[in-house]
Design a protein around this nucleic acid. Sequence first.
RNA 1: GGUGAGGUGGCCGAGUGGUUGAAGGCGACAGUCUUGAAAACUGUUGUGCCGGAAACGGUACCGUGAGUUCGAAUCUCACCCUCACCGCCA
Length: 417
Amino acid sequence: MLDINSIRQNPEEIKKGIAAKNGDALLVDAFLAEDAQWRELTAEVDELRARQKKAGNERNVKEAKKLKEEIKVKEEGLTSAEQKRAELLRKMPNPPLPEVPLGKSDKENVVLREVGAKPVFDFTPKDYFALAEQCDIIDTERAAKVSGARFGYLKGEAAMLEFALVQFAFDTARKEGFVPVVPPVMVKEEMMRGMGYVDRSEDRDETYLLEKDNLYLVGTSEQSVGPMLADEIIDAEKLPLRFVAFSTCFRREAGSYGKDTKGILRVHQFDKVEMFSFCHPDRSKEEHKLLLALEERMMQALRLPYHVLDICTADLGMPAAAKFDIEAWMPGQNDGKGEYRETHSTSNTTDFQARRLNVRFRSGQQKPEYVHMLNGTAFAIGRMLIAIMENYQQADGSILVPDALVPYMGGITEIKR
RNA sequence: GGUGAGGUGGCCGAGUGGUUGAAGGCGACAGUCUUGAAAACUGUUGUGCCGGAAACGGUACCGUGAGUUCGAAUCUCACCCUCACCGCCA
């Protein structure tokens, strides 16, 4: 949600920001019109109420009754203006930060750097799915029998790798002051709304809803860690508050029916370690860099080649004001020619989510201000498994375990049938 | 799932229809006293919105939403949440 005052004061700037995101800049004009109407009615209703209150206190019942009727009528208009205004406000995306590259589609995302040497094989590298089959560590066939399409069993070393990755991520993040968390994966509607995930129909279609209890299954633990501090005021000295959360994530993948149907690249249920930070507004750009740096540090520790994308304005999504993605090199994809696939994403949502969720901080006796909220992937387990398998494969189809994970694997150094 | 209790300001806690934004206490802040500190005493101490350069004025807020009433923290209904006991359970 945007700051009402900043829309009133700099409507042109906000319009530019929304347009850069391929959003509807006319929302701003519609909002301002509704807002003007709302202000006018507010003044009128407040004045009528003052008179009514006075009449009531003087036990002038007749006068008070008359005013009551007038208020009732006026209030209908007020409520309607208020609702329209709020709805328009909720639809406005967070404008991009000035340094974000301008672009019209994801094709204009900027590659900031390529890191790590792509592995050179003296054989045609296999797709992770073939490797997994050979090593018998992923079973999507039985998962389809039990749960349907887009599910998978991780077995044996794949299951062990999952927990090795989780431990490794927790250890790494903990050194930077992140508090490990295992959050709820079922979340109330109002909190989903606060994070900005229910307002647009495409987002609603993407989430699972448990209708009996009106609870949503999280698509990322961000949705349950962010609201953790809703309606709270944090001491400024305690910022930044950093959490690293492990949770299962649920996604309906509506609208991607044709895409990535095979294997575990795109599934309804996967586990993920996510970093989340609440910080002082002046510090959010640095914090964003820290999240990205940690993601890169972990990728480098695993010796996985990747590149970093500075996501352009059009590809930011609703709550993000700036976003960096990491795409890992997956040599087995694209018929053994390899391609980059997204494994990480880190967003600075500035005060957009904080305002909706009412997460504030206070320094000394000063007025509370909204914090900035940021999130970043530590490891999306399924996709990390793919990256590891394809990069660490050997001619015979066996897979080496990255050195950094061996201590967490009970000493296992190689996966073979 | 059953039964019962309850949600009031930063915290504890009073308040069952009438200038109640809300007694009292704790905490916090400022001051007096003190060489300094503690104690004691005095004062200040919520937020949103509208108007205003400001002082200030108005309005709303006692879990959330609707309702009754000239008037609601107080009455009615629905929902959310918390706690206790019983049942079930990883």
